[in-house]
Amino acid sequence: MVPVGPGSGRPGLDQTGAGRSGPGRSGPGRPRSERARLAILDAAADLLIEGGLAAATMEAIAARAGVSKVTIYKWWPSRGAVAVDAYFHRYRPEMGMFDSGDLARDLTAQITLMVDAFRGRAGAIMAELIGAAQTDAVLADQLRALWIKPRRDAGTILIQGAVDRGELRPDLDIQIALDQLFGPLYFRLLVRHLPLGDPMPAALVRAFLDGAR
């Protein structure tokens, strides 16, 4: 399967530089320290895994990374922004997106990756980030820029390709289709009325294709 992302010439999960609040951008003056940036991201990710968002304070991140809070604030405007960036620094490879030209297989594979990740620590942290985003505008913007938009862009390419190949009907609303495919994962993650189970990926893709052809 071909990755949808950098190097593919197609927008995907990892093409997120435009949404970064600081560390992904270059600026005038002295070059930023990549070593310090990665130390901050690793420290924040470790703290998120160990104790959730409450543990990832600026003080704790600075102490764990061996930098000053001033250094962190040079690149990120808030604790929430660091946390979101650190989350995807750690977990993005586990939830990649691919385009093999086989829509059913690709969608099933992508949903399976998300189900597997969301059943573990990545899911608990994602739920906490989504909750915090309701009252933290900076965190919400970062979450949309680093996760929601890139994934929807990549999903749009996959589904539009199937429409162009005549596999799906031409009047399909792709944004609604993406909600239909991936929305149930977030609903179960947040509401917890039912588990994120193994049958979900195939069932969601089958229901989508039944209505989209």
Results as ranks from 00 to 15, higher is better:
Arg10Tyr: 04
Thr16Trp: 01
Ala18Gln: 02
Gly22Trp: 14
Arg25Gly: 11
Arg30Asn: 03
Arg32Asp: 14
Arg32Pro: 12
Ser33Met: 06
Arg35Asn: 08
Ala36Phe: 06
Ala39Ser: 13
Asp42Glu: 15
Leu47Pro: 08
Ile49Gln: 10
Glu50Lys: 10
Ala54Phe: 02
Ala56Lys: 00
Ile61Asn: 02
Ala63Thr: 06
Arg64Val: 07
Ser68Ala: 14
Ser68Gly: 12
Thr71Asn: 00
Ile72Phe: 09
Ser78Trp: 00
Arg79His: 07
Gly80Arg: 10
Ala81Leu: 01
Ala83Pro: 02
Val84Pro: 00
Val84Asn: 00
Asp85Asn: 11
Arg90Leu: 06
Arg90Met: 15
Arg92Pro: 01
Pro93Thr: 07
Pro93Tyr: 13
Met97Thr: 03
Gly101Gln: 00
Asp102Ile: 12
Leu103Glu: 14
Thr108Gln: 07
Thr108Asp: 07
Gln110Glu: 15
Leu113Val: 15
Met114Glu: 05
Met114Arg: 04
Val115His: 07
Phe118Leu: 14
Gly120Ala: 11
Arg121Pro: 05
Gly123Tyr: 04
Gly131Ile: 03
Ala133Cys: 03
Thr135Ile: 11
Thr135Pro: 00
Ala137Tyr: 09
Leu139Pro: 06
Asp141Gly: 04
Leu146Gln: 15
Ile148Glu: 08
Ile159Ala: 02
Ile159Met: 01
Gln160Phe: 14
Ala162Thr: 11
Asp164Val: 03
Gly166Arg: 15
Leu168Ala: 02
Leu168Phe: 09
Arg169Asn: 14
Arg169Thr: 09
Ile174Trp: 01
Ile174Gly: 04
Ile174Leu: 01
Ile176Ser: 12
Asp179Gly: 05
Asp179Pro: 15
Asp179Asn: 09
Gln180Phe: 12
Gln180Thr: 01
Phe182Tyr: 12
Phe182Glu: 07
Gly183Leu: 14
Leu185Glu: 03
Arg192Met: 03
Pro195Gln: 02
Leu196Ala: 11
Pro199Gly: 13
Met200Ala: 03
Met200Cys: 10
Pro201Ala: 02
Pro201Lys: 02
Ala202Met: 05
Leu204His: 11
